[in-house]
């Protein structure tokens, strides 16, 4: 890189790329399950981003670009660890049939109050227990606020797949949290309130 390009690159890096480090770290942490691997992923992402900074159009969507790099870095890391000799696609890490989604009933018993006393750990455990494809769309959409179009570009799938995967992922997450809440004795206060109201009315 020549000196002028290098100083522009450094400026872009500091002003447009580095501010996303917290979001990238959260994403990496929920992909890798631990802080050390997450830090390695974030570091690798920034090194790659700097190396290919010429490919980045200043003032465009730096966050989406970085997330795509991180996702690819994660796949490569996963591939190395699992010592798989052949090239695998992100979608092949844990495959599933999108077409089945429409046939499965939605989880309708969403009682938010049931979850209100839970700590963040339960949410993290529940999200981390989702298969990677589902976990990824929840993190990108619900936690980071990316649009369907941005998510489609980050994970290289059609927008329709993003939509159906999100639908299924949210239902799975609700089911897991609901099950967890019941197993750990959290009470459904809304039901209790309704019962109390009925008792009050009958008195």
């Amino acid at each position: 890189m020549d000196k002028n390009k290098e100083s522009t690159g450094d400026e872009v890096f500091e002003q447009e790329l580095l501010p996303h480090i917290d979001a990238l770290n959260t994403f990496a942490y929920h992909l890798a399950y631990n802080k050390e691997d997450a830090a390695d992923l974030v570091q690798e992402t920034y090194m790659k981003a700097y190396r290919f900074i010429d490919k980045y159009d200043q003032g465009t969507n730096a966050k989406a670009w970085l997330f795509k790099i991180l996702k690819n870095a994660y796949i490569n890391q996963y591939r190395k660890k699992s010592k798989r000799p052949t090239k695998v696609d992100f979608e092949e890490i844990i495959s599933y049939q999108d077409s089945e989604d429409a046939l499965k009933p939605a989880f309708t018993d969403l009682r938010t109050e049931l979850f209100s006393n839970m700590m963040g750990d339960e949410v993290t455990i529940a999200i981390n227990s989702l298969p990677i494809d589902f976990r990824t769309v929840i993190l990108l959409c619900d936690i980071e606020g990316f649009t369907y179009e941005e998510i489609a570009k980050i994970i290289d799938v059609p927008i329709g797949t993003v939509r159906s995967r999100l639908f299924r992922a949210r239902n799975m997450l609700k089911e897991k949290l609901h099950k967890y809440a019941l197993e750990h004795g959290y009470e459904d206060k809304r039901g209790a309130k309704q019962e109390n109201n009925l008792t009050d009315e009958s008195e």
Partner: peptide, 13 residues
């Protein structure tokens, strides 16, 4: 539910 997930998730510093 979404607000809950967004605020409760662990975000390591």
């Amino acid at each position: 539910f979404r607000n809950y997930i967004k605020t409760a998730i662990n975000r390591p510093s």
